[in-house]
Design a protein around this nucleic acid. Structure first.
Lengths: 208, 208
DNA sequence: AAGTGTGAACTTTTTCACAGCT
DNA sequence: AGCTGTGAAAAAGTTCACACTT
């Protein structure tokens, strides 16, 4: 099987969200046409995307919302639970912890790290803030799957600490994009300023 | 000229960030090879991307960091200032306002909106929280360029309110993706759970 | 009859490779 | 000599259109 294109991955994640919503609305069955419209793509695209996951529908009928949701979730690794740590004690990291949405989605925040002495030892919503130099200790004590960079100042510090301690998956919420040298490490750069810049480009070119 | 591909836009935004960093480090000149490496792409890609912006380098020499940065900034609409409003008074919106990073980047938060009575009239860092039904009034009083959806619950409410009042550019920070019916409206969906799911897919498939 | 799954056609994007400027 | 800018080639991704199943 060919490798999954990144855009297909992005769309599969969207289909999953839309299916969860349909399930909440007690919809049992959906056609590629309908699911595609709700997901902002065309139905050929959707069917081609789903073909990477498997043969999931019934010809002449459509897709079972429950079954397709489950298969996508499985395919995306979202039936498992993942342990997450956070780099940087900032309002954003407080938000991530207190909001509790990540836990609900199966991403468990196990610890936070900072470098400023006054932040070490703080506990937020049951999550302790450790000194970054204790990362090695924490990584030995628990399986850390994902590191989230939640500061906009020392992103490089946390990035190299995460990489050095064998963390393979990093979500970078700073506004500076990071690129791993080791291709075994996966970084997702998710920047609000980046998103706003796409909109500013669009606004600048309106009507041209 | 052909239309700018979305991925090219994404990369141009990254080049701009990297250039800003080089300028901070007082680097005057950079080759496509070096800038590409710092941006996680190859140099042919970078040169092709820049060709959408114009002829910006000097053959045999490279690019002036200052000049290229300025040209990219201009091209992306980032030499202008944009007025932003926020939908939903949540810890995330508090973070966006108090962090002050957006203002520094030229995105000015003019107002926030909520629907819960107890939140109306609150002032955070100089930003007032209005009832959503006053959006019409605010949109008449000031030019609103961008609406940010900063709640994970009533995203649809704010979305339709924004659209209805003529806001053309929307940054959706909720975990549910939104797609405008009117193609004159541009939505950027930026979801932390989406980013984490990409990482969970990667982790699930490690070693395969 | 309805709607999926998929080769084939088409379109877009990326990479190559080198002419041409400094 | 060195490095950009860009047509041309190659690769990747999207859409079409229809055979096939229920």
């Amino acid at each position: 099987m060919k490798e999954l294109p990144e855009n297909t991955l992005n769309r599969l994640i969207i289909y999953l969200k839309v299916l969860e919503n349909l399930e909440k609305k007690r919809v049992d069955s959906v056609s590629s046409e309908d699911l595609a419209r709700l997901s902002g793509v065309n139905s050929a695209q959707l069917r081609k995307d789903l073909s990477f996951v498997g043969t999931l529908g019934t010809k002449g009928v459509g897709y079972s919302v429950k079954a397709l949701k489950y298969n996508l979730k499985k395919f995306l690794g979202r039936t498992e639970e993942w342990n997450v740590i956070i780099g940087g004690l900032t309002p954003l990291s407080r938000y991530l912890i207190e909001h509790a949405q990540l836990q609900k989605e199966g991403f468990f925040i196990m610890a936070a790290f900072d470098t400023k002495p006054e932040n070490i030892g703080v506990v937020i919503g049951g999550v302790s803030v450790y000194n970054l130099d204790q990362l090695s200790y924490v990584c030995k004590a628990i399986k850390v799957d994902i590191g989230i960079i939640a500061t906009d100042e020392d992103q490089e510090t946390y990035f190299s600490a995460f990489v050095q301690h064998g963390i393979k998956a990093i979500l970078n919420l700073s506004n500076y994009p990071l690129f791993p040298e080791d291709e075994k490490i996966k970084v997702e750069n998710l920047s609000i300023v980046h998103g706003l810049t796409k909109l500013s480009y669009y606004l600048k070119n309106l009507g041209s």
